[in-house]
Computed example of a mutant assay.
Amino acid sequence: MDKLIYTAMTSGKHTLAQMDTVTHNLANISTDGFKSQLDSFRAVPVVSNDLPTQTFVVDATVGTNFTAGAIHPTDRALDIAIKGQGWIAVEDANGKEAYTRGGSLQVNQNGLLQTQRGLNVLGESGTITLPPDENVTFSKDGTVSTIPVGNKVANGTIIGRLKLVNPPENTLVRGDDGLFRTKDNVPAEIDGTVQVASGAIEDSNVNSVESLVSMINLARNFDMHVKLLTSAQNNDEKASTVLNLA
């Protein structure tokens, strides 16, 4: 009886964990450049001196779907999207280097180029500061240039170049803040092959239909585990009744 109870209990627990992952993905369906999380669980035999007749359920390592999302034009000068593979380097809340695909940028009151969350965007030689009252343009290699407002003749002034990187996906880990970092916390090297599209944004790669179907299936699985626990309780009560009669 304990085998049924333990298996159903642990499986139900991890099914709830998977539902949390799917819910998190659905909540970020409109987040620019968001990469959906992957989660799964598997049965593992209990190691003991007895025969391996018992199993318990554990979560497999939560992974990430690095598939690129669709790119849609916005015609906003400060919007950029990574074309293909690659990342935009930013400075996280602790001043460390991190990576994002969210390319909706802004300029703060001090002229610093930042993400919409207020994180400084990194260039190849540090943060990028833009002069006031000038239009900003991004070339496909990440070069940042400015042109005085109203001046359509003057050549652009190069301010710097975005730090664009493309470390192997298996070396990246997602933080609680949604940013990615290298597992060894060593800043990734600049990759000159990474290209950006200006005036565009990359959508989240979450598949809403697939996520909703997964949510329904997980809810049914959890209901099945609850019914198994109820059946185990009923069987235990009946067994106790039989023993009392003996």
Rank of each mutant, 00 (worst) to 15 (best):
I5L: 10
I5M: 14
T10R: 02
G12A: 09
G12W: 11
Q18L: 15
Q18F: 10
V22R: 00
H24E: 10
A27I: 08
N28L: 07
S30I: 10
D32S: 07
G33H: 11
K35T: 04
Q37V: 13
Q37E: 14
R42D: 12
V44L: 09
P45N: 11
A60P: 00
V62W: 03
G63H: 12
N65A: 09
T74N: 08
R76W: 07
A77N: 04
L78A: 02
I80G: 00
K83I: 10
G84I: 08
I88A: 08
I88V: 15
A89D: 01
E91A: 11
N94I: 04
G95S: 11
E97D: 13
E97T: 15
R101V: 06
G103C: 09
G103K: 11
Q114M: 11
Q114S: 04
Q114E: 10
T115F: 03
T115L: 03
Q116A: 11
G118S: 05
E124H: 09
I128K: 06
P132R: 12
P132E: 13
N135P: 06
F138L: 08
T143V: 03
V144P: 00
V144G: 00
T146D: 03
P148C: 02
V149I: 15
N151C: 05
V153D: 08
A154H: 04
I159K: 15
G160F: 10
R161V: 03
L162H: 03
K163S: 00
P167G: 00
P168R: 11
T171W: 05
V173K: 14
L179N: 07
L179H: 09
K183C: 00
D184Y: 04
P187H: 03
Q195W: 07
A197T: 14
S198E: 14
G199V: 08
A200N: 13
E202W: 15
D203Q: 15
N205R: 14
S208W: 04
S208E: 06
V209A: 00
E210P: 09
I216G: 01
I216E: 02
N221Y: 10
N221G: 11
F222V: 04
V226M: 13
V226R: 13
V226F: 06
K227A: 10
A232L: 09
D236R: 08
L245R: 10
